[in-house]
Nucleic acid binder design. Structure first.
Lengths: 198, 198, 198, 198
DNA sequence: CTCTAAACGAGACGGTACGTCGAGTCTTCTA
DNA sequence: TAGAAGACTCGACGTACCGTCTCGTTTAGAG
């Protein structure tokens, strides 16, 4: 059944890039509309006008497809502020991060993607490689620069700090015992810079 | 289909408690054997000898059932050490925690439960109420006592610290960019007590 | 998608007989509307409101299902005339047979069923057992009675005659080199009773 | 995917005759190996090294292609014996025919082709024109000659006799209620020459 | 002998049906 | 009368084949 007005597209081969683009757009729409619960190969195929065979050829799991759809919508902003003050930079980046996952549909989407990744090895690998890892690298580099500027302990492991800042936020996103607010992220930074001792 | 050897149990009524117990045991077995991916109502019903109808009567979703099965296997140890030294207590508790989720089948199981909870509201609510929340409370109370002993800042928010310690560990469990080791948890505590500044 | 007006039927169990009846009726409709070419499990399931699982449980192949549908529509008339004159009886029966397969939708349907049976062992077996064999038996019995009345050679094999009468008609149905007319069946009988020699 | 050892043939244009020959050979092989059930354009294309596009250009349906493959293997022997004794000639020809369709792979193949023809108009037309019709013509001509020799009734319709001999055999091939033996074909001829009356 | 147009191989593509599986609902029968 | 048994609908799964179409290559035939 073709939508009226859309020109009847022949059944034969179409340029791969065109097909991929349409599929990914449809995947993004569906992910943000229905979440991972209602995200199926069938629906993406039907929305995009592609056949299921094509989807299975390019994406190893529905999670991997949803991840591509997610990126299409949330064009990743990887910029990391560098004002020379690492404390301020971390705070600024965390504020932006919390804003995105709290006040936009991206929050639930990313939570469900991480959830799906727990039973979808392909998705977990893709998520780490394409999303998580580059972001960690940016933060780690910023902290390394700060170490050279004398703003951080020279023996500090930036990766650990990343888990204590962004990891703490993800924890509240996935297991919302406590709210995820700006005050929370400010406290995260303060705890680390000032310590929690008396 | 009944396993050969298991006595053919009649179809009639059985005591509710007996049924519940057998179902939960079967759920726990299945969860640890096949993970959430292969965890279905059908299999639990078939293993336990109970009917699906009974399962749907008592558990609102397969996640909620799996959670009960999880508890049956991992009899929750809620004790929190109290030696009078909050730093040592946190460190000890984190070491035990990391040991459980790294070196026992409970780690993958809990990761998959949290994953499933992202698309299963019933499970998320049950998880927070029965698992997450009481553990947070124990840690928070320990920190409150430490504040009264003068070991922690009086204006410290224990909830935030919890996310920076256990939340950081969950982050590495769910998104294993970096390994989850004892050295890592030691660094978590050190960072918070000594600060990350120069 | 349910037809508007048809009461939304719950998803649960329904009496097997009710389901079977609806399925077979739908199968018959579909067979006579679209022929075997367009006859699929999917369409029968959708028309009947039954699920494909149910169909696969009861019918080993789509041919077997179509055969049941065929019987539902063409309530088999197994009566064989017995006037005491075997020549007249055969002629009458053949006239009726040719009328059915030439001038009703049953002709194409039965041709396609036989066609499908060539690559569907389940259908072939069912067809022989339920359709072909009982009809042959009636004709054979009629000829045996005629032998006792002295109207046929005592050493005649009725089964061979059946293939020379009805088999000849099926041949023209399946491979229509020549038309299938009343004159043809009259000639069939004449040839056998009078011989073809000079 | 090319079989190792077979020289990698370039992709460009090849002589049409060479392509046709290879396709038809592959079709014949496939038909006799897997029957119509497993006979697909895809497999013929892959076996022959031709592209599906080419197949669709020359054959209107898979049945038509299979028919060409059949002919390639069973080089049609159209000779009809002419000893001057029509009874003996018919008997001889029928014996040979029964031998072919009973004791060689051609029997199932031809049955499946006739089966497929019931839902494939192109195949039915081709079958009648190229296979059925010329063979009927030979038999009819032999009988016409016999009429002139005074061995058959002058008003006999040979076409009807053909259906009572070969048609009866096809009936037993397609719907094997009863076995297809030499005794059967002898009885067919006897019934027609001697009549079935007392 | 060169150049072009046709024909070909490869194979992706949309579409439809296949046969299976699990979720959730409902009936029947037993103890 | 609660519970076991299990059949049922629904919808998605992943695969196979059909008939169409794009792309790049090669040869046949025209100039």
């Amino acid at each position: 059944m073709h939508t009226i007005g859309r020109p009847r597209r022949g059944r034969g081969r179409r340029p791969a890039d065109e097909v991929r683009r349409e599929v990914i757009e449809a995947a993004g729409e569906l992910l943000f509309e229905e979440g991972m619960a209602g995200f199926t190969f069938d629906k993406v195929a039907s929305r995009s006008g592609a056949s299921k065979m094509t989807l299975y050829k390019w994406w190893p799991s529905k999670g991997a497809l949803a991840l591509d759809g997610y990126f299409k919508r949330v064009e990743p902003v990887l910029a990391f502020p560098d004002t020379g003050d690492i404390g301020a930079d971390l705070r600024a980046q965390l504020h932006a991060f919390v804003h995105v996952i709290s006040d936009s549909p991206a929050g639930p989407a990313i939570a469900e993607l991480i959830g799906q990744a727990q039973t979808d090895p392909e998705l977990k690998a893709a998520y780490l490689r394409r999303y998580s890892s580059p972001r960690r690298a940016l933060a780690a580099e910023a902290m390394e620069r700060a170490k050279q500027r004398g703003q951080l302990r020279v023996d500090l492991d930036p990766e650990t700090v990343i888990d204590q800042l962004w990891g703490a936020c993800y924890h509240r996103l996935l297991l919302p015992d406590q709210p995820l607010t700006e005050g929370f992220v400010d406290a995260l930074v303060t705890n680390l810079f000032d310590g929690i001792g008396p």
